[in-house]
Every structure is written in structure tokens, then in C-alpha cells.
Design a protein around this nucleic acid. Structure first.
Length: 406
DNA sequence: TGTCCACTGGAAGGGAGGGCTT
DNA sequence: AAGCCCTCCCTTCCAGTGGACA
């Protein structure tokens, strides 16, 4: 390769590129118009409109599965309101927070701190850690209440927040208005979890869902439509083989109508085709892309896990090579312990490992199901949720990460 | 029918790592 | 520097449990 580098780059430059503009594939891309969501936009706009009269809009709760356009639609509508407010000098402020982002808004302290930052406080006012939580609240209230204004607080993936930090935080937030003299806060909660509110404190529940809105999944036709529109911007003319978009949409529709998936699939297909120097994106690229996306996701997760998690995963991997069927918690724990001893790592307790198993399950790296073996106790059946083609690679990564000689 | 296994998962708490105020 | 308060990761302790078996 070294000797041919010039030739390679030369060829690279000459090669017909498939992409015209990749920005439509980024998360932050907002199309001028949002397809198939007029109804939802109208409803949201109607609910938020009182903000323009500096009255507090009702709180709103939005459900819908991933990739159904919730975030996009809400932000789109809220931005419009803010735009109008700005022109007419009406004091409306929109704050958008994604509660899932680690180290941003996944605990009560950090959420409130983040809200403070959004309102102009700095890390000097609220350090990332250290203050009592109610002190952070006070600082937040103070900056919020400095002027008469309506604040629209959009909490995306709010279910994640509650799962990690409990629902007390929502209780505090819904009561926030009674603490304020000038400002008013409206909360828009967005959740992927359709039964999320079931577990909430009833007071929180009723106050948070003054209004509710459900985003249905897109159907195959709608996904197709959206894909075509974006593909027109993203790719040069005629580089997508007939039927590829349709199939892409069909995949995604089957997988719960997730447009984000569909877009990613299309992008990766394009990249694969381009890298191979092909002129058209074909069905084969679509299949390859599906594989690659899953593989990258798995590898990315595994590489960033702490050693303890990796050691456990290695144990599960080894066990699933040697035994047919399921692995039980006890077995996995025993092997994990002996792995720890050979690599000089202090093993965690079984209780902790139990939580680690749950975490890996939630990441989709393993499947763990509680079963009862009657007289022989209750435990979890664990199975690796990694496609067999990816396992050798995973094994190498783990062996490197843990410094194990194969 | 009751027993009893091999765990699960809740509760409490410790201590390391951080930063605050005084 | 002392004394708080925070989060995160972890341990210890323990009550709870579905269902095969006696």
C-alpha cells in the first residue's frame, strides 16, 4: 500500500462519489417541513400558544417509540414559538434537555445544574459536584425568577431520568411554579416507554400529563416517502438501485417504524458502496450495512465497559462456547471469579454481578431471563446476544482488554 | 401439600473522589 | 484545614419467590 498511496489517493479523487450532502443523516438535521406529523404539530402548537400571551401553557406528555419523530416535532414547534416570541419581544424561553446523555442530565443534581447552565449560569455558579442539591435548586430558582417569563422545558427521554434518579425529581419540577413569583415553567416530557407513567407517583402523573400526545409509528409507505426526500438531498441522482429505498423502508417498518434506523441503514449502505468504488447502492450493500451497524454497536459498547464487566462478559462468552443452551448466574459467576484471579482483578460480589448482568442485558449484549428450576432454585438464564459472526472479534477485544493469553 | 433451592432485588451504608463553606 | 454534602460503585444483609420434588 505504501508505495501505491499516491495512486490510491489519485483514484480516490477520481472516483465518482455517491454522496452529495451527508448532513441530512445527522441527528441535528431539521428538514424544512416534517412529514406526516401535521396533526401532532397542530396539537403541540395549540398547547404551547398561550406562552405568547405570557401565560403558562399546560404541561404535556408525549409518548412514542424511537424514531417516530417526537423530538424533531417538538423542537420544531417550540423553536417556532421562540422565533415568534423573539420577534415580538415576548419573554419565552425554550430549554431542551436529553436526560439520557450521561454526565449531562441523568441525575437530579446534574439535571438542575444543567437547567441553570441553560439559563446562563456557569460552572463557577454551580460546580459539577459538591453543592447540596437544594442549594442548586435555589440558585436555579433565583436565576429563573429574575424576570417575568415563560420557560418551556423539554425533557427528552424522561423515562431514563426517572429510572436512574427516581420520580422525586419530577415532583420537585412540577411544583416549581409555586416557588416562583415572576417566571413560569411548562414541562414537556418525552418518553419512548409507553407505560412509563404507570410507575409514577399519582400527583406527578396528573400534573405532568395535563395533556398527552401519542406519536404512532410510521408505516412503510411513510418511511419510504421520508427516505426518498432525504435521499434526494443526500445522494447524487440515480445512484440508488431501484427498490433499495423500498426495502430499506420495509426493514425499518418491520422494526417498529423507526425512521432513524432507516436513515442510518441508508447512510451506511452508501458509505459501503462508495468505499468499494461502486457506482450504485445495491441490495447487497443494504444487508452488509445491517450487519455492520449491529457489529459496530456491539463492539463500541464492549470496548467502553469497565474491566469487571468485560471479565464477566468473557466468562459468558467462554461458557457459551463450551455449553449448549443457557448459562446460569452461578456458573457465570464461578468462571468470572476464576478469570479475575488469573488476571489479578478483585472479584465483585455476586450481588453486584447480579446488577452487572442486568446492565448488560439492558445494553442488549446479553439476554437474561429469570427462570425457576423448582427444587433447584431460581436464577437467570443468560445467553449472549451477539451474532456469531461478531463473536471472534469480541473475544479478541476482551482478551486484549483483560490481557488474557488465549 | 409443603419444602427448599439458588438465586433475585430491596435497603442501608461505606468509602473514594469530588467540591463546597468557614 | 475542618466539616459538609454530593455522586458513584460497591458490600453486607436479608426477605422474597416459582416451581420440581418428596
Amino acid at each position: 500500500m505504501t508505495n501505491n498511496l499516491n495512486a490510491y489517493f489519485e483514484k480516490y479523487l477520481q472516483k465518482e462519489m455517491l454522496f452529495r450532502d451527508k448532513k441530512v443523516f445527522t441527528m441535528s438535521y431539521t428538514p424544512d417541513s416534517i412529514e406526516f406529523r401535521d396533526e401532532q404539530i397542530d396539537i403541540i402548537a395549540g398547547i404551547l400558544a398561550p406562552a405568547l400571551r405570557v401565560e403558562k401553557p399546560s404541561n404535556l406528555f408525549i409518548y412514542g417509540k424511537t424514531g417516530t419523530g417526537k423530538t424533531l416535532t417538538v423542537r420544531h414547534t417550540a423553536n417556532h414559538i421562540q422565533q415568534v416570541a423573539k420577534e415580538k419581544e415576548i419573554p419565552v424561553k425554550v430549554i431542551y434537555l436529553n436526560c439520557k446523555l450521561k454526565r449531562v442530565a441523568d441525575t437530579e443534581y446534574r439535571l438542575v445544574a444543567q437547567l441553570g447552565y441553560e439559563l446562563g449560569l456557569t460552572e463557577e455558579d454551580i460546580p459539577p459536584t459538591g453543592l447540596p442539591t437544594d442549594e442548586v435548586y435555589k440558585k436555579f430558582y433565583r436565576v429563573l425568577d429574575k424576570q417575568k417569563q415563560v420557560v418551556i422545558l423539554i425533557l427528552d427521554e424522561i423515562d431514563q431520568l426517572v429510572k436512574k434518579a427516581g420520580d422525586e425529581i419530577l415532583y420537585n419540577l412540577t411544583r416549581i411554579n409555586s416557588e416562583l413569583k415572576l417566571a413560569q415553567v411548562t414541562i414537556i416530557g418525552i418518553s419512548n416507554d409507553l407505560v412509563f407513567t404507570d410507575g409514577l407517583d399519582t400527583r406527578v402523573k396528573s400534573s405532568l400529563s395535563e395533556e398527552e400526545l401519542v406519536f404512532p409509528p410510521y408505516n412503510a409507505f411513510q418511511i419510504q416517502n421520508i427516505l426518498k426526500k432525504r435521499a434526494k438531498i443526500a445522494f447524487k441522482d440515480g445512484v440508488i438501485q431501484e427498490g433499495v429505498i423500498e426495502k430499506c423502508a420495509a426493514y425499518a417498518a418491520r422494526e417498529h417504524g423507526d425512521v432513524r434506523r432507516a436513515l442510518e441503514l441508508l447512510r451506511v449502505s452508501g458509505e459501503l458502496a462508495e468505499r468499494k468504488g461502486e457506482e450504485k447502492i445495491a441490495f447487497s450493500h443494504l444487508d452488509e450495512a445491517e450487519d455492520k451497524i449491529e457489529r459496530d454497536r456491539v463492539i463500541d459498547i464492549i470496548e467502553t465497559q469497565p474491566k469487571q464487566f468485560q471479565a464477566l462478559l468473557y466468562a459468558v462468552l467462554k461458557l457459551s462456547q463450551n455449553t449448549q443452551g443457557f448459562i446460569l448466574t452461578g456458573e457465570a459467576y464461578e468462571l468470572y471469579k476464576s478469570i479475575c484471579y488469573t488476571i489479578d482483578l478483585r472479584p465483585l460480589t455476586q450481588r453486584r454481578i447480579s446488577d452487572v448482568i442486568t446492565e448488560l442485558d439492558m445494553l442488549g449484549i446479553i439476554n437474561a431471563k429469570i427462570i425457576s428450576k423448582g427444587r433447584f432454585g431460581r436464577t437467570r438464564e443468560i445467553a449472549l446476544a451477539i451474532p456469531s459472526t461478531t463473536r471472534p472479534k469480541v473475544q479478541t477485544i476482551l482478551e486484549q482488554g483483560l490481557a488474557i493469553q488465549a
